[in-house]
């Protein structure tokens, strides 16, 4: 029996673990090793150079810009997205006019809102990015077209071409994509909060704002926190890469105004032929990601409320 058990365990774990080790774990380890070499990626020869890549990185202006933009995304994106999503979810679930027999209820059409808000979540980030690239087009785009329609002919920003605006335009697209997911997620969380809590609060004369901050938010805290981690990983990962790579001029421009860490890793490795340097920036990205996760976990830690 014991013998059969171990044979079974090994048999079942071998394939997934091997695949995972070869395609995920091993490249991670390799990339940390490569960050100490002068490997170009173009030829198989390379030699160890110690911390030369790291010294170079700390003097690289583009790296600092990328880091700065990534950190801005990391801080701004979760705040806006989760804030909007909490507001919408609260309105949809608890914000409705009071009806007979129920202390709290959703607004009318809450089902529709939940379905519609979720649309962007099922679309490819690439498709969304292309769509908004055209929407932002200064001459033929939807947004400036709408501004002209309402008579704001003087206000025709060059959205993605304006170094001061470009990063915000891209942030807006990421917010547009993700709010709906969290509205649905928080709605599910709010639905599991017992109704008596709200009834008791209402009997005590609490306003809806108070109800939100004293009842809904504390009881939803775990979900908000995991949402925060999820948004952070998104702001540093594939989604941020995709929108900047597709939408921005250059990409990363104008004048490095939108470049982010994952994009710079990609460009260093596959455009500039500096694979070792790319992995160095990648290690910096890893450090930022882990530091972020640690901070959120520490700040967000509080006693778990059982209900």
């Amino acid at each position: 029996m014991q013998h059969g058990k171990y044979r079974f365990i090994i048999g079942f774990l071998a394939a997934p673990l091997a695949l995972y080790a070869v395609f995920v774990i091993w490249p991670f380890i390799q990339s940390i090793y490569y960050s100490f070499t002068d490997w170009t990626g173009l030829s198989p020869e390379f030699s160890m150079v110690g911390f030369a890549n790291y010294t170079k990185m700390f003097q690289d202006e583009v790296f600092w810009k990328s880091l700065q933009h990534s950190v801005v995304l990391l801080l701004v994106l979760p705040v806006i997205t989760l804030g909007l999503a909490l507001f919408f979810a609260f309105m949809i679930n608890v914000g409705g006019r009071r009806r007979k027999g129920a202390a709290v209820g959703g607004v009318r059409g809450s089902g529709f809102y939940k379905i519609a808000y979720f649309f962007p979540q099922v679309l490819s980030i690439a498709i969304v990015a292309i769509l908004f690239q055209f929407a932002y087009d200064p001459a033929q785009g939807m947004i400036n077209g709408a501004l002209r329609t309402v008579g704001l002919d003087g206000l025709q920003p060059n959205w993605l071409g304006d170094p001061g605006l470009a990063l915000w335009c891209i942030t807006a697209v990421l917010v547009w994509c993700t709010v709906g997911f969290f509205v649905v997620l928080f709605s599910a969380g709010m639905a599991s909060i017992p109704r008596d809590f709200y009834e008791a609060a209402l009997l005590d004369g609490a306003s809806r704002v108070t109800t939100f901050f004293r009842i809904t938010l504390p009881l939803l805290w775990d979900t908000v926190q995991s949402g925060w981690v999820y948004m952070g990983i998104l702001a540093l990962g594939a989604e941020a890469f995709a929108v900047v790579h597709i939408m921005s001029i250059g990409p990363g421009g104008p004048d490095y105004a939108t470049t982010v860490l994952p994009l710079y890793v990609y460009q260093a490795a596959f455009r500039d032929g500096q694979a070792a340097y790319a992995t160095t920036i990648g290690v910096a990205l890893l450090v930022v990601t882990l530091a972020f996760a640690a901070v959120v976990m520490r700040l967000g830690r509080r006693e778990r409320l059982e209900f």
């Binding site: 995972y20 395609f23 995920v24 774990i25 091993w26 490249p27 991670f28 390799q30 990339s31 490569y34 990626g41 981690v229 990983i233 540093l236 990962g237 594939a238 890469f241 860490l261 994952p262 890793v265 990609y266 490795a269 596959f270 694979a275 790319a278 992995t279 990648g282 290690v283 990205l285 890893l286 990601t289 882990l290 996760a293």
Partner: peptide
Amino acid sequence: GGMSFPVMLALVPLFFV
């Protein structure tokens, strides 16, 4: 743990592998 690692970091060596 693989859920939170930045995939782009692994893609550079993976490309050449």
